[in-house]
């Protein structure tokens, strides 16, 4: 089902639409074309007629499922930060690196700027984004408002999306594994597998989330309305 297009008869360009009608329409994020909102089956996607961008998603979030996935993600993130991610043995010597040590290696060597970038993109931003979703889902589930500005947190969650680079870090780990094969005996640690599961988990979460629904949840929290 494609959402209906707006024809001039429905909305006259000379007279701006009445504000209470605005929620019936959506503008394409990529080309600004206006579409009328149509109810969709669950998991259905509405796409722009002109540029095929995803406009919105059908169905609503199952809060319990979402919370379960988010908590799983949090546990996986903690596990992948507390155990060695790669182990290395060469001529009787053994070393290993945790996720955090890898992210902080540049700082140890005095290279502050790449250290900050790696730390942000591989730990702090993913952790922040997971935490924000957890806070919003929890407040919706409990029907209670915590003394935090959820809207501002969600704003940053959206802005920071391209800067969460866990999957790229995973590729980096794989490259490092292959590169070191000749030099020494390398093997992935517990954290490596937790990390892999974490990326799958995050993909599942983002597949069921819709920005509009998240914002509806957040504004409901703000207004103090129970779910």
């Amino acid at each position: 089902m494609t959402p209906m297009q707006v024809t001039p008869s429905m909305a006259n360009p000379d007279t701006p639409m009445a504000e209470h009608h605005l929620d019936d329409y959506i503008a394409c994020p990529d080309c600004d074309l206006l579409h009328r909102l149509r109810p969709l089956e669950s998991r259905q996607l509405a796409r722009c007629r002109r540029c095929n961008a995803v406009l919105y998603r059908g169905g609503s979030v199952n809060l319990q499922h979402l919370l379960a996935w988010l908590l799983t993600g949090l546990i996986l993130l903690l596990v992948s930060n507390s155990y060695p991610i790669l182990q290395l043995a060469s001529q009787g010597q053994e070393t290993h690196a945790t996720f955090f040590q890898a992210a902080a290696a540049f700082a140890v060597q005095g290279m502050w700027w790449p250290a900050a970038l790696v730390l942000l993109t591989s730990i702090l931003i993913p952790f922040y984004r997971l935490g924000v979703l957890l806070l919003i889902a929890l407040q919706s589930q409990l029907g209670r408002r915590l003394p935090i500005d959820s809207a501002r947190l969600l704003l940053w969650h959206d802005w920071l999306a391209p800067w969460s680079m866990l999957e790229i870090f995973l590729l980096g780990l794989l490259v490092a594994l292959v590169k070191l094969q000749d030099l020494a005996e390398v093997s992935p640690g517990i954290a490596f597998y937790a990390f892999f599961l974490l990326i799958l988990n995050l993909a599942i979460i983002s597949a069921q989330l819709d920005r509009r629904q998240l914002w509806r949840m957040t504004t409901q929290i703000r207004a103090g309305v129970k779910k």
Partner: peptide
């Protein structure tokens, strides 16, 4: 960014005196 991560991982791991 992958190469930056690779260097970071190698620098953290390969510290064999």
């Amino acid at each position: 960014m992958v190469d930056v991560f690779v260097v970071a991982i190698l620098a953290a791991l390969v510290q064999l005196g």
